[in-house]
Simulated scan of single mutants.
Amino acid sequence: MKRMRWPAYLGLLLALSCGKWGGRQPEHPSPLAGPASGMPGDCPTHKLAFTQATGCHNDGSVEFCLPKDPQLAVRIRALAPELQGPMGSGGRARCDLTREELYFFPTRPGIECAQSSSSLTEEAWVRLCRVAEDPAVSRIVPTWFE
């Protein structure tokens, strides 16, 4: 058996490790990561009237307006399939019903919300950040029923 040289061994070690660490995106990105860059800080929190820690302090959902465009609704639902809507009112998001529709993102305990907490789960936060990144979404606010 021929003895392997140090540089060849190092090259083999690096090649084998690249499959695990070589530039791949994490399976569970940071809750602030955006789809394009994958770097933290890309969540447009200026569009959110809450934080991840307070995202479940509401009457069971958060809401936002979308322009009346079926293709846009399909695109947004692909980011957050649990969306409910369109609804027939302007809601707390104050949609202009002549050109916009109201959508709800549910905040259910143990699903989108951490059990016994007002905090959104990491997965729900990521989905809401993705929705907020769309230019058609101007703001997302807590739902309060009267």
Rank of each mutant, 00 (worst) to 15 (best):
A15R: 01
A36W: 14
R127W: 07
K20N: 09
G90V: 06
A53P: 01
E27F: 05
H28F: 10
A114V: 15
A124S: 15
R5F: 04
K47L: 00
G85N: 11
T121L: 13
Q52G: 13
C95V: 07
R108W: 11
L83R: 10
C18P: 00
L13N: 10
G38K: 02
C56V: 04
A78D: 12
R24T: 06
C65Y: 09
D59V: 01
C43L: 08
C113G: 12
P31F: 05
I140W: 05
F105R: 09
H28C: 06
C113T: 14
G55Y: 03
R3L: 10
E122P: 03
R24M: 05
V74S: 09
Y103T: 03
A73M: 00
P26Y: 05
A53E: 13
W144P: 08
F105N: 04
Q84T: 13
L16G: 02
L16E: 01
E133F: 05
F145K: 15
F145A: 14
G11W: 15
P86H: 01
P135T: 14
Q115G: 09
L128S: 07
K20D: 06
V126F: 10
F50I: 04
P26F: 03
K47V: 04
T51E: 12
A53N: 08
I111F: 14
D134L: 05
G23S: 09
S119G: 11
V141M: 10
L13K: 10
S37I: 00
W144K: 15
I140T: 06
R127K: 14
E146D: 14
A124Y: 11
G19V: 03
L10I: 15
V131P: 05
K47S: 01
G88D: 11
P70I: 08
F145N: 15
L128I: 13
A136C: 01
L102M: 05
A132R: 06
L13W: 12
L72W: 05
R3C: 02
V141T: 15
A53Q: 13
A80Y: 12
C18H: 12
E123H: 10
A33Q: 08
V141Q: 12
A136N: 01
A124G: 09
R92T: 13
A124P: 02
R130P: 06
G60H: 11
A93D: 08
L66Y: 04
R139S: 08
A136Q: 01
L48T: 00
C95W: 04
P86N: 04
C56Y: 07
F50H: 05
G11C: 13
A114R: 15
A36L: 14
E112P: 07
G41E: 12
R108S: 14
V137Q: 05
G90A: 11
L10V: 15
F104G: 08
R75N: 11
A132Q: 06
F104Q: 11
F64S: 01
E63P: 07
G11T: 13
F105H: 08
